[in-house]
Nucleic acid binder design. Sequence first.
DNA 1: TATATATACTTGTATTATACAACTAGATTG
DNA 2: CAATCTAGTTGTATAATACAAGTATATATA
Lengths: 140, 140
Amino acid sequence: MEQEQDIIGLIEYEVAILVRRAVAAGNVGSLDRSAYLLLRQLEMQGPVGVKALADEFRLDISTVSRQTAALEAKGLVQRLPNPEDGRASLFQITDEGMRQLTETRTARKNRYSLLLKDWSDEDRRKLGGLLARLNRTFID
Amino acid sequence: MEQEQDIIGLIEYEVAILVRRAVAAGNVGSLDRSAYLLLRQLEMQGPVGVKALADEFRLDISTVSRQTAALEAKGLVQRLPNPEDGRASLFQITDEGMRQLTETRTARKNRYSLLLKDWSDEDRRKLGGLLARLNRTFID
DNA sequence: TATATATACTTGTATTATACAACTAGATTG
DNA sequence: CAATCTAGTTGTATAATACAAGTATATATA
């Protein structure tokens, strides 16, 4: 169970290393990872509140509350009242938020283009597909 | 470039999400991710110093210095003088360190076994191989 | 060989991301 | 309508990290 047959062990290890490497690579573009993912989510989902974002990323509500407050302070998102719930707000990306999101996304993609420049299209497709599947699997 | 043809964009996004999910999943077993990777590295490389570990993980030397000091305080590693360099130490896993490493590795593997329980062996192999390749690619 | 420079740490300080607990205000339910 | 639930905020604590300054040892150079 500790030889090359131990595929589970390999995956476990490589994911841990990938996390380490990706974190060590630091921020690319003007947004940090949290801000980037949050803005991406708002871009995809349209205006949502803190709770929905916290659920999506499995973060504590308080964490996301601070992150969205920081984004608001920087003018990257706008807080709208939720007409259906007076306790909650809805966050919407501002023009400047979209600008920085686009810029950061491009920078990140450039990094991966460079990283994967020698990979075949076939292997890229496989990796993308399997990562997507793994991430979906994570959602228990 | 923003359709399904954008494989690079997909990979970039899925890696970011995987990092988020893996971090959110929290610690498994008795060791945190840093301690786990550090002990694994010591297990593989044999006794090495702070610098080598910091290089391996692209962390600041000061960060690794504190991490190894913490491991030493917990009795998971032992500090040996480096006979070839009076400035440096070499760290070696203790028996208790090996015990906790094994325990944590097993716990982590169990988690992935569960996660990947419906995957074909073929897909697992592909994922493991592609992740390993991606990580090697990260080493510029 | 003596001195200057480089290296491997260690420690002080600051920042950031996170969680949990206590609280507030608004929503839902019996 | 009172009791309870829920969304969010804010206070506090912790952990992981980096950078800067300092120490001790090693290496290179004059």
